[in-house]
C-alpha cells in the first residue's frame, strides 16, 4: 500500500500505508537536527555545551517515534472510513451537438435574436449586443448585497435580481419617489407626506424599467461606477445611459447574472 510518503502527503484514494511511517523514520534522520556523535568537536567555542548535552540518537529517534505514532493512528483509524476522491468526467459517448438532433434543434431555438443587454452584476459590466456583435460595453453598478434591518420590523436585501427580464418602460427625466428603505437607511422615519419622497435628480436623465421596481438609470456619483453600491437597480454613466436609452426598445431582453 502506498499512501503516506516522505513528504507527508496521502494518495488520492485516501489510503494510508500501515508500514509507511516506519519507512519514513529514516528520511526524518536525513532532515533532522545535525546533532550527530561528532558534533561537539566541530562547533565553535561560543556554544560548546549545547552539542554535548544532547545524545545524538535522541532527535531522530523521537521524530521517528512521533511519525510512527501518527502513521499508526491514521492507518488504524482510517482503515474503515476512507475519504476518496476522483477526477470528475461524464461519459463522452453521451456528448454530441449534432445539429440534426431534436434536442439540439430545441436548444438552438432558445437564444434570443436581435438586441440584448447583458449585465455582470459582480464585476459591474454591461454589454449591449446584437447578433453576437458588441455595440457598447459600459461600467455599471449593481446591488450591494447589504441587508437593512428596520428596528423591530422589516428587512430589505439590496440584491440585483438575476435571470432574464425585459425592458417594460422607458422614461425621460425620471422622478424617484423614495421608498421607505431610503429613509430607514438614513436613520429617519419614512415621512407621511409624499412630496417629501420626491427626488428629481438622483436617477439622471433617463430610466428603463425592468419590472418590480428595478431600473437601469443614471447616477450623481459616476466615480462609483463599477462598484456594487446600489439598492438593486443598475446605474450607468451619463453617456452610456443615453446610448442605451436611445438604442434599446421596450421589450428588449436583459440578462442579469
Amino acid at each position: 500500500m502506498s499512501g503516506l510518503d516522505g513528504t507527508g502527503r496521502v494518495d488520492d484514494a485516501g489510503t494510508v500505508g500501515e508500514a509507511s511511517g516506519v519507512e519514513d523514520a529514516g528520511t526524518v534522520d536525513e532532515v533532522g537536527e545535525p546533532a550527530g556523535p561528532g558534533a561537539p568537536e566541530v562547533v565553535t567555542g561560543e556554544t560548546p555545551a549545547e552539542g554535548r548535552a544532547r545524545p545524538g540518537w535522541l532527535v531522530p529517534a523521537s521524530a521517528g517515534l512521533a511519525l510512527a505514532v501518527v502513521a499508526v493512528i491514521a492507518a488504524g483509524a482510517m482503515a474503515g472510513d476512507t475519504i476518496r476522491s476522483a477526477s470528475f468526467a461524464v461519459d463522452p459517448a453521451s456528448a454530441s451537438l449534432d445539429p440534426g438532433r431534436d434536442a439540439v434543434r430545441r436548444l438552438r431555438r432558445q437564444p434570443p435574436r436581435g438586441l440584448i443587454v447583458v449585465i455582470d452584476t459582480a464585476r459591474g459590466r454591461l454589454w449591449l449586443e446584437r447578433g453576437g456583435e458588441v455595440l457598447r460595453e459600459a461600467a455599471c453598478s449593481a446591488g450591494s448585497g447589504t441587508v437593512l434591518v428596520e428596528p423591530g420590523n422589516r428587512v430589505w436585501v439590496f440584491d440585483t435580481p438575476t435571470g432574464e427580464r425585459r425592458v417594460i418602460e422607458k422614461r425621460r427625466n425620471p422622478v424617484w419617489i423614495k421608498p421607505d428603505w431610503a429613509f430607514v437607511e438614513e436613520g429617519t422615519l419614512p415621512p407621511e407626506d409624499w412630496r417629501a419622497r420626491r427626488d428629481d435628480v438622483s436617477l439622471g436623465d433617463y430610466a428603463l424599467s425592468l419590472g418590480d421596481g428595478y431600473l437601469i438609470h443614471g447616477t450623481l456619483f459616476q466615480s462609483l461606477l463599477g462598484q456594487p453600491v446600489t439598492h438593486g437597480c443598475i446605474r450607468l454613466g451619463d453617456e452610456d445611459l443615453e446610448y442605451v436609452w436611445q438604442t434599446v426598445g421596450v421589450g428588449t431582453r436583459v440578462y442579469l447574472y
Partner: peptide, 10 residues
C-alpha cells in the same frame, strides 16, 4: 453581507 441596522429612527 454588510448589515445596516439603525437602533432608532428619528
Amino acid at each position: 453581507r454588510r448589515v445596516v441596522a439603525p437602533e432608532v429612527l428619528v
